[in-house]
C-alpha cells in the first residue's frame, strides 16, 4: 500500500504538534531514471520513525541518518546520491539515476 504525499505532510504536522522532533526530506532534483519524482517526501522523527519515500527504498537508510544530524543541528542539508557515488552503491541506488534530496527540520 502506498502512502500519498498529502498524508506524509499532514503526518509531519501532527507529529510536530504532538511534541516530536521532525525532519522533512524532499527530492529536489533527479537525473536519469529515478524511482520517485521531484517533490516526493520522507519524514523522520527523533526516534527514527519514518513515513513516505524518496527513492523507493534505495537510499532511505542514509537519508534517515542525515535527518538525525539535521534534527540535532537545526541546519538544512543537501544530499546527493548517484551511481558515481560510493555511498550510493553501498545504499544501492542501482537504477542508474542520480537524486538530490533536501533535508530540513520542522521548527
Amino acid at each position: 500500500m502506498s502512502v500519498r504525499d498529502d498524508d506524509v505532510l499532514a503526518t509531519a504536522e501532527r507529529w510536530r504538534k504532538e511534541g516530536r522532533t521532525v525532519a522533512i526530506a524532499t527530492v529536489v532534483e533527479t537525473w536519469g531514471s529515478a524511482p520517485r519524482p521531484v517533490g516526493s517526501h520522507l519524514i523522520v522523527d527523533g526516534e527514527q520513525n519514518f513515513l513516505g519515500s524518496v527513492s523507493g527504498g534505495c537510499v532511505e537508510g542514509d537519508v534517515i541518518a542525515a535527518a538525525g544530524d539535521v534534527i540535532e543541528s537545526g541546519k538544512p542539508k543537501m544530499l546527493e546520491f548517484g551511481v558515481a557515488d560510493e555511498a550510493a552503491w553501498r545504499a544501492g541506488l542501482s537504477c542508474g539515476g542520480n537524486i538530490r534530496v533536501y533535508v530540513e527540520k520542522v521548527d
Binding site: 498529502d6 505532510l9 499532514a10 504536522e13 510536530r16 504538534k17 522533512i24 533536501y102 527540520k105 521548527d107
Partner: peptide, 28 residues
C-alpha cells in the same frame, strides 16, 4: 521548515487550493 508554514500549507491543500512552497537553495 517552520511549523506555521507547514500548517498553512496543509490547510491550503485540505481546502483544495493551489499552493507553492518556495525554498531558497542558497541560504535556505
Amino acid at each position: 521548515m517552520r511549523l506555521d508554514l507547514l500548517t498553512a500549507m496543509n490547510a491550503e491543500r485540505a481546502a483544495r487550493r493551489a499552493a507553492v512552497l518556495v525554498t531558497a537553495l542558497e541560504g535556505g
